[in-house]
Design a protein around this nucleic acid. Structure first.
Lengths: 358, 358
DNA sequence: TTGAAAGCGCTAACAG
DNA sequence: CTGTTAGCGCTTTCAA
């Protein structure tokens, strides 16, 4: 009840109050299984409670302990895809007693490097990374710093890193096959600049799918709007890109029957532009998205899309990270997630006769 | 080059290589203005570069240095409002050489406390908080730990805390006045559980606005859908709540002329439900939102709403925090932001005769 | 101008 | 079972 103490209580204060040595106090307070007489143990705990003792992380960390933070680097924090993904990561981490720290890189390789430095600096327990850039050295630096990592979302060739990526090629194929299966022939592929590996794969898969089903796919079916690198990969940017794409589609001599947009936000932009120009989806034209962002469900018409399962990706990535944290840096794994179609209202089925296995 | 070193270089290594004492090395490496002979200075810098020396934060922090992290606690990370806000915070922080750390509390007071503990634990340089809960003790704990904070978004009465809040009362009034000015009379107020101060104020303001313009406002004009506390304040949750509200509006004996929704995500849910039921916005009914979330612009019809200016809020909050970090904990300020109307397509103006100052 | 040394709070190796 | 002690990497007196 005496005058309030200004300074935080240290382990020394606790030890003194409990009439034991600092070592004994540490042994019970750090939760080690070292044997300590019950009597002292409870005295120490009581003292700690009375003093509102909290161990100083920096002391522990300096001593060589591992931080309980997990670094998560994503290109955009406002993109719902990464939000869902992070929600999953957060859940898995919290369950294990770790705290995820979110960094948004705006798809900027310098920023990405900056944040990775940060993680090493703070000796994060692990890192979950979606990067546009990657270099051999990175992996080595992280390994030397004892920060295991798993890459996700963006496909990388490097076989020496754990990663979970998405089968964009199959995704592209699925898109083509679904649209053709719905009775469309004149199909257009709408995209921003095809710079990232994910987009290249998607395009290749789409093309393959078209040709497999006897549809040709040429330059003129590719609608692309080049966007500057400046402002990063915000949801808004993709949406605006979609609007431009919608404009370009409207300018064509003939309206295509269907358009496949490279991600949901672009698809939403396209739909908005078409609708405000009096072209109705899916009556006049079908639109297929990609990602399965929450907002796809909220617009009118609800967006038919191909799901990358953000939540599952996050969950798996986190689980994989914990595995390699336990198993040591030896173990590397690569996982590939398959696309799944989410049918809603933005693609019109021209005939409902569905061919069953032949 | 000789065999790679496994361990990270410490200041001791640098000092040895430069043939100086640790103290001298520290003096130049920590950027102190302590006088050191130019010659040694450059030798030390060279050694540091060669060894790729990075100071160990925990050493510095343990010694009493301040962390360069700013903790930001928001109720939901998937809510675009907080995304925009955080984008602004991030910008301001980065410019000052600080790193913002984002925590999502799901509007859970226990989580909020948990994260605040975390910030104190890691001796964050400052905290930006949007909390559903608040207690006197909190402020004291933060102050004692030397973590200045500014509250935002949620209004709190406590006058001993810096805060930037939004004039929800005026917002509510503006909503009522705008809708009435657009020629509507039968107006409905759609909301989730009126539990937070922000919602209470909004409702009061709305009611006042209605009455001021000679419209009565009674129980029957209040449409509320109670949502459980469980899953937190995700965008999806508000959207679903909006759908329920839409349902309730459709069940009424007469369709109102306009509805004011407590936030944009709910407004979007309402619009979706109405549209899929064949009731068109704004032809059959007007919908006014609140927040000015990016997505409001993307839907059809584009959402008319009242802006809280997320970006500006974030910017101001961060600036205010830096002020109180510099000025010491003495200075407290309270700012109040005024609402601004964003006219788009979801509210129909029944007559375009606008009364000019009489 | 430089260096030796103390100590931030904590854990673990070693001695009793 | 308990206590003494060294030392993690860094900054900062204090002495030279």
């Amino acid at each position: 009840m005496a005058g309030g103490k200004k300074k935080k209580a240290t382990i020394k204060d606790v030890a003194e109050m409990a009439h034991v040595s600092i070592a004994t106090a540490s042994r019970v307070l750090s939760g080690s299984d070292y044997p300590v007489k019950e009597e002292l143990k409870s005295a120490i705990l009581a003292a700690a409670r009375k003093l509102d003792y909290r161990p100083n992380v920096f002391g522990q960390l300096l001593r060589g302990g591992r931080n309980k933070q997990i670094g998560v680097v994503v290109p955009s924090i406002s993109n719902p895809f990464y939000n869902q993904l992070f929600a999953a990561v957060q859940k898995v981490c919290m369950d294990q007693g770790y705290v995820p720290i979110l960094y948004s890189s705006h798809s900027d390789w310098d920023m990405e490097k900056h944040y990775i430095d940060m993680l090493i600096h703070y000796q994060a327990a692990g890192a979950l990374l979606s990067l546009v850039g990657w270099e051999e050295g990175m992996q080595k630096r992280l390994e030397e710093a004892g920060v295991p990592c798993v890459l996700f979302d963006q496909p990388h060739e490097d076989p020496k890193v754990s990663s979970i990526d998405f089968d964009f090629y199959s995704g592209g194929r699925l898109a083509a096959e679904y649209l053709i299966g719905a009775g469309h022939r004149e199909i257009v592929f709408a995209t921003g600049t095809v710079d990232r590996p994910s987009r290249k794969k998607l395009l290749e898969g789409f093309q393959a799918g078209m040709e497999l089903r006897g549809c040709s796919f040429g330059e003129d079916q590719l609608v692309v709007h080049h966007t500057g690198r400046e402002s990063g990969a915000s949801a808004m940017k993709d949406y605006r890109c979609g609007q431009e794409l919608g404009e370009k589609i409207l300018e064509r001599p003939y309206l295509p029957e269907a358009v496949f947009a490279i991600n949901d936000m672009m698809a939403i932009g396209i739909i908005k532009k078409l609708e405000t120009s009096g072209v109705h989806v899916p009556v006049d034209i079908s639109v297929l998205g990609f990602d399965d962002v929450e907002f796809g469900e909220m617009i009118v018409p609800a967006l038919t899309t191909i799901s990358q399962s953000a939540y599952r990706t996050g969950e798996l990535a986190a689980e994989m990270l914990f595995e390699s944290m336990e198993q040591g840096s030896g173990m590397k794994r690569r996982l590939m997630l398959e696309p799944v179609l989410v049918e809603r209202d933005s693609v019109r089925r021209k005939h409902d006769k569905i061919r069953r296995n032949h």
